[in-house]
Design a protein around this nucleic acid. Structure first.
Lengths: 166, 166
DNA sequence: GTCCTTTCGTTGAACTCTCAAGTTTCAGGC
DNA sequence: GCCTGAAACTTGAGAGTTCAACGAAAGGAC
């Protein structure tokens, strides 16, 4: 079977998108690290927890919501525990389950980091997009998700939780 | 100064795009690791070198082209040297410069990995996009790049090298 | 020539992620 | 009750990344 290579247009699109996304992420990471002393991944975890009922989530759900493996999340939560930003609790009924709970200290750290981060996202991304781009981008992202996300778990979580932060 | 939060539409778009991109990248990484025994980052390095004149690039240019820091590239090239896929050479004129050269072994590894990788990119990304999406996506990516890429170096490199691989 | 600054790259330590293997708990037969 | 298998996490080691400090060569200024 002969390989169907990418067309020039496809190749160019791929390079542009990949580059833009990588630079965007690394720039956001650098800024939040500098301004708030935490990596972007921590922010995402804290933000996820802050929006959950009781500021609490099962480890598995938090992993799915942040696109992390369970192992990665477990290590990350251990690090967040050392900073006293998150606390682990055992589920009362199903003793296999571990709940990650955002502490008050964690909430404060998130609240301190949020304005700067949102400003950065706005400056680097949304200030450069038109109203019409938003819907189109989301549409494309949704289609890509359908292909990548085998079990559809990420999509389901996204559909539930797309309200702005409090 | 009060923070201007993201609108519901912006927040949703951001979550979708971020999720789609992260899952896409990690899925591509998993597949090439499984099928070709190399991480996606190695592939990108080898691909970059393979398209360069003489299959040779300065460390700095290769770092810029792959959106890596110089330190990251230096470590990565050291690992690639251990696999005998890349060789270091000193520049004859400017003795500060180090040239990374793709070896024949490296080229073979790339050639073996390419078909599978391209197939994956096609399946996960381009098969889900319409012709019209391509131009729109590239346009958006270019605008984002202008904001993120302070010195415009990534854009310049992209503009030069957007021909399909040989 | 000598000094100062910039450019190009490397290094080591600390941190983060991945992968495979392990523990504990639950749920269903039988 | 007692297996057996699956589910939910954790762990440790190795791979990869980041950050700050460093060395070596080049380019002026004088």
């Amino acid at each position: 079977m002969t390989t169907r290579w990418l067309s020039g247009q496809e190749h160019r699109t791929w390079l542009y998108v990949l580059t833009a996304v990588q630079l965007l992420e690394s720039e956001l990471d650098r800024r939040i690290q500098r301004d708030a002393g935490m990596p972007l991944a921590y922010y995402m975890l804290l933000a996820g927890l802050s929006e959950a009922p009781g500021r609490t989530m099962r480890m598995g759900d938090l992993a799915a919501f942040t696109n992390a493996s369970q192992s990665r999340l477990s290590h990350a939560v251990s690090r967040l525990e050392k900073r006293r930003w998150v606390r682990r609790e055992r589920h009362e009924v199903d003793r296999r389950v571990v709940l990650a709970v955002l502490t008050d200290e964690g909430y404060e750290a998130l609240a301190a980091a949020a304005p700067g981060h949102v400003r950065a996202v706005r400056e680097l991304l949304f200030d450069r997009l038109e109203e019409a781009d938003l819907a189109a981008l989301q549409d494309v992202a949704a289609r890509v998700l359908d292909g990548v996300d085998g079990s559809g778990s990420a999509r389901a979580l996204l559909a539930e939780r797309t309200v702005p932060p409090a």
